[in-house]
Simulated scan of single mutants.
Amino acid sequence: MLELHQIFAKQKRMLFFLLAFCALGWAFTPYQTVFAGLALGALFGHYNFWILVRRMERFDRSINEGKKVASLGSAFRFASGIAAVAVATMLPKYFHLISTVIGLMIPYVLLLVDRIVFHVKYQ
C-alpha cells in the first residue's frame, strides 16, 4: 500500500501543475470555458482517484483480516462523474462539457503514463 500512496502523491503534484496550466490558459487565451472545464474535470477525476485509493486500502485490510470483501466504491466514482457533468451542463457559460469529460480521465491517463515510464525505466 505504500506504493499506492506514493503514486497518489505523485498524482497530486501533477494535478497542481495541470491546474496551473489551466489557470494560465484560462487567463491568457480566448478558450476560458475549455480550460475551466479541464480543471473541473481534473479535480473531480482526482477525487475519484482518491476514492479508489481509500477503497483499495479498505479492501486490502479486509483481505488481510479475512473479512468479507466490500465494494470498491464504483457507485461513488460514477456519481462523482455525473456531478461533474451536471455542473458543466448547468453552467455552459463557464464550463465546456467535452473538456470536462476529458478532464475526468486525466488522472487515469497520468497513471497509465507513469506506470509505463516506471516499467521502461526500471525493467
Rank of each mutant, 00 (worst) to 15 (best):
T89R: 11
E65W: 05
N48I: 08
Y108R: 08
E57S: 10
P92Y: 05
S74H: 15
L40Y: 01
L2D: 11
L40N: 02
P30T: 12
D114H: 10
N64H: 12
V101D: 04
L18D: 04
K68T: 08
Y47E: 06
L97S: 02
S71K: 11
L40Q: 01
E3S: 14
L40S: 04
P107S: 05
N48M: 12
A86C: 12
M1W: 14
M90P: 02
H119F: 13
Y108K: 08
G66L: 05
F28H: 13
S71P: 00
M1S: 13
L91H: 05
H5S: 11
H5A: 11
L52G: 00
H96Q: 15
S74N: 15
P107W: 03
I51N: 06
V109W: 07
A88D: 01
A84Y: 02
L91C: 08
F21T: 02
R58K: 10
L2N: 13
H119Y: 14
V101H: 00
L40D: 03
I7E: 13
F21D: 01
L112P: 03
P92W: 06
I63Y: 08
K12P: 01
K93A: 13
T33G: 00
T100Y: 00
Y47I: 08
L104S: 02
E65V: 02
Y122Q: 12
F17T: 13
M105I: 09
A27V: 09
I106K: 00
L97T: 03
G45R: 01
L15C: 07
I102G: 01
M1I: 08
Y108C: 06
W26S: 11
A20R: 09
A42G: 05
Y94L: 15
A75P: 04
I116M: 11
M105N: 07
L91T: 05
G73F: 03
L38T: 02
L97F: 07
L72S: 06
I51E: 04
S74G: 14
L24A: 15
T33I: 06
L38M: 13
M105K: 09
A86S: 14
F59Q: 07
V85G: 05
A88E: 01
P30V: 12
A36M: 10
F35V: 05
V53C: 08
M56Q: 09
A27M: 15
F17V: 05
S62R: 13
G103F: 04
E57A: 05
A27W: 09
L4H: 12
S99R: 03
T89P: 00
T89M: 15
G103E: 04
M14E: 14
R115G: 07
R58C: 05
R13V: 15
F59M: 09
G73M: 07
D60F: 06
F76S: 10
A86V: 07
R55K: 10
V34C: 05
G66Q: 06
I82E: 10
V113S: 09
M105D: 07
I7M: 14
K121T: 10
F59S: 05
F35M: 08
F28S: 12
T33R: 04
